[in-house]
């Protein structure tokens, strides 16, 4: 069941098309990873979902309600952590957490205290004195102490140290175990790989890929390492082989998912002495899409 459903979402700022027909959904009880380079449209999408920006075309619903016209109703059951947490310099962290809780509705006082201890936050300090990481902790405590059904997290760990990142990941796992949904936008691909059930990659305002990690891997290249008995010179010529490098006694390269069989058939006559295969990391997927942009730009130039 889709908690959050976005279809053909378009947003322009003047002549600039920030979002150009974005489609994706977040289902109940899943963690959806939202990745893409800076300026790809992640934060714009999230700000449209929060009813802060008005979309120019497409539909966007959360809990089946329209994100613009039913914003207040929707916000009752969502928790949001912005990428740049800006707080009132003359209020303390504790005051801000309580204020956010009051504005949200239900206050879980016990959970609030637990989270403050977990995140190791001094709530008696004025927000003016907080570092980026500490401001993020304030927003995270306020979000995870709430009884939200959907968590919208926009690069929530960019200022946290590795210990706090771990605490954050535990929090996400806990809310997921409780059957709640999470939209996690992030640059930290290892984090997305660890936490997310499904992933969407956005580029220049277009969703270029969505699916589970397994599905995405199917579509893309595997990393192979082979050592052969007899020398072979023209691996590079085999269709579907990329990024070939000589490594030690063998070769390292990537193979397109649908060419794997053909490549293996070509190589087996040479006697395969050793074969290692690793699934592509999210970073590979990401770089593959990101690389395409530069590739296309070069083609355009020539």
């Amino acid at each position: 069941m889709a908690i959050l459903d976005v279809k053909g979402l378009t947003k322009t700022f003047g002549k600039f098309r920030a979002l150009d027909g974005v489609d994706f959904e977040v289902r109940k009880g899943e963690v959806f990873g939202f990745i893409g380079p800076n300026g790809a449209g992640k934060s714009t999408t999230i700000r449209v979902l929060l009813g802060l920006l008005k979309r120019d075309a497409g539909t966007a619903t959360i809990f089946g309600q329209d994100v613009w016209s039913d914003a207040v109703e929707i916000h009752r059951k969502i928790a949001y952590v912005p990428g740049d947490v800006n707080l009132w310099p003359n209020l303390t962290g504790g005051e801000v957490i309580d204020l956010f809780a009051s504005l949200q509705g239900d206050v879980n006082a016990k959970r609030r205290e637990e989270l403050i201890v977990k995140f190791n936050l001094d709530t008696s300090k004025k927000c003016r004195t907080y570092s980026k990481g500490n401001r993020q902790k304030v927003a995270l405590v306020a979000a995870f102490a709430s009884d939200a059904e959907l968590f919208i997290l926009d690069e929530p760990t960019s200022g946290l140290d590795p210990l706090m990142e771990r605490v954050f990941q535990q929090c996400v796992e806990e809310v997921k175990a409780a059957g709640k949904s999470v939209l996690l936008s992030s640059h930290i691909l290892s984090e997305v790989e660890r936490l997310c059930d499904r992933v969407g990659i956005i580029r220049s305002g277009v969703m270029v890929e969505t699916g589970t990690l397994a599905e995405l891997r199917h579509l893309t290249r595997s990393n192979l390492y082979v050592e052969l008995n007899s020398p072979v010179t023209d691996i590079r010529q085999i269709p579907g082989v990329h990024e070939l490098v000589e490594a030690g006694d063998g070769w390292k390269f990537q193979v397109d998912g649908d060419k794997l069989d053909a490549v293996m058939s070509y190589l087996s006559p040479y006697g395969i002495r050793r074969l290692e295969s690793a699934p592509p990391t999210l970073e590979d997927l990401f770089m593959q899409h990101y690389g395409d942009v530069t590739g296309r730009a070069e083609e355009g130039d020539s």
Binding site: L50, L52, H75, Y80, L87, F100, L103
Partner: peptide
């Protein structure tokens, strides 16, 4: 301008 309205409007505030 200081980006603090988001945190308020992102909650149950019209």
């Amino acid at each position: 301008k200081k980006g603090r309205v988001d945190s308020v409007l992102g909650r149950r505030v019209s």
